[in-house]
Simulated assay, not measured.
Amino acid sequence: MRIGIISHLKHPIAEPFAGGLEMHTFQLARMLRQRGHDVTLFASVKSDPDLGLEAICSETAIAEVGLSEASDIAFFREHHAYLSLMNSLRTRDFDVIQNNSLHYLPVSMADTIPMPMVTTLHTPPFCWLESGVRLSDTRNHGLVGVSHSIERQWAHVRSLDAVIPNGIDLNKFGFQPFADAYPYLVWYGRIVPEKGLHLAMDAARQVGLPLRIAGPAHDETYFRDEIQPRLGGDARYEGHMAHADLADLIGGARAFLCSPMWDEPYGLVVAEALACGVPVAAFARGAIPEIVDSHSGVLATPGDAGSLAMATLAAMQLDRRACRARAFAICSAEKMIDGYEAIYAHMIHRMQEQTASPLSRVAAPRDELYPAPSASTLSPAMAHG
């Protein structure tokens, strides 16, 4: 298939990844190309050229604009980049467009292009994206959710065509048996308030093990006010690490602490930790209860550092091989690509039928690549209310 992938433009689609969305888009483009598809990635200029890059904009991250009018400049850069792209797609020769942009223009203009579009919903509804989805033509615009949690949050706007969990390259997160020499805990991700690192640092101190931290510090004020005062001999910030170094850091940990202050749409960091064989202690929010099970993680009361500490102590007793097995069962990139190939083929077929018979209305089959989760293991704090 000839596939065009529309990326978001805040950060380049390249290592080291700014976040989970960049990693997901990179993985999707790379593996579709490996399967023989002709892929073009529409992204910012510093994205990886090996992904079939067609640059449509410089990065639009506010920090890189550096002006008092930063938000307006970023808004108009994105607006004009996506408007130009969608207009150009009217004469381009693609079989399907994959939209990972989180922007309202591609979804609201889906019915202006001659090929079907599939939009993956990586976030809960917000006003701009929700309005675009409501305006889109359902006949040639398929919606995919990355979790059942996201599916439920979008249900009042529109039903989804498929739930396809994000996947990771399990070979890049190799299993690491625990070495007793220097036990530590790990936290990694974007260092912003909604990721709750300060609570993970408090929990690690209650456990009594050092915490090693990795990821980009996207919020300077939060880092200065909440994170730096908590750093010390038992809490060390490693910076924004390259992929191989990050995998080594994760794999050497006794447990991974996940402390979201919002409902995580998926949680790639959880999948990566499990792939390394590292048990997870996490706040029970969003899609995280869909990823971990009683053999691979322990859930804690959201926002409660003491509960997270208790969950960490329990998680450290879990079998690391069971964690790796859980990653193979539900977090495989191969399974993710199977799902996207299936929805692309379905959307192409549905649009061909619509073209041949305009009066026909073919409903999309409901496709779930894993079942809704059963009750997950609770920490002692949650089990006792």
Rank of each mutant, 00 (worst) to 15 (best):
K335F: 00
D219K: 05
L41P: 07
H295D: 13
L246N: 01
R361E: 14
R321T: 07
S374I: 11
Y237E: 04
A287C: 13
I348V: 15
I168E: 08
E194G: 04
A282T: 05
Y188C: 02
A63E: 14
N100W: 05
G66R: 14
G286T: 07
E264N: 07
Q354T: 10
F42E: 06
D180Y: 04
I113L: 09
Y266S: 07
A70I: 10
A162Q: 08
S294E: 15
A329K: 15
L249V: 08
D48L: 00
S136D: 02
N140M: 04
R321G: 06
M115Q: 13
A204P: 14
P183N: 15
G251Q: 03
L89K: 00
A235D: 02
R158F: 11
D219H: 13
Q206Y: 07
M117F: 08
I330W: 04
E64I: 12
A217G: 10
D38E: 13
L21W: 05
A255N: 10
E78V: 04
A204N: 05
G20Q: 14
G267A: 07
C331F: 08
I73A: 03
V278W: 08
L135M: 15
A305C: 05
A214R: 01
H346D: 15
G189A: 06
C258T: 09
C331G: 12
D367H: 14
A214L: 02
G19V: 12
T91I: 07
T60R: 00
R158D: 09
D95W: 00
Y188S: 10
G145I: 00
V280L: 09
E341D: 00
A356V: 08
M109Y: 00
H122E: 09
A14L: 07
L308I: 06
L67P: 06
R134L: 13
A345K: 12
A63L: 10
L28N: 02
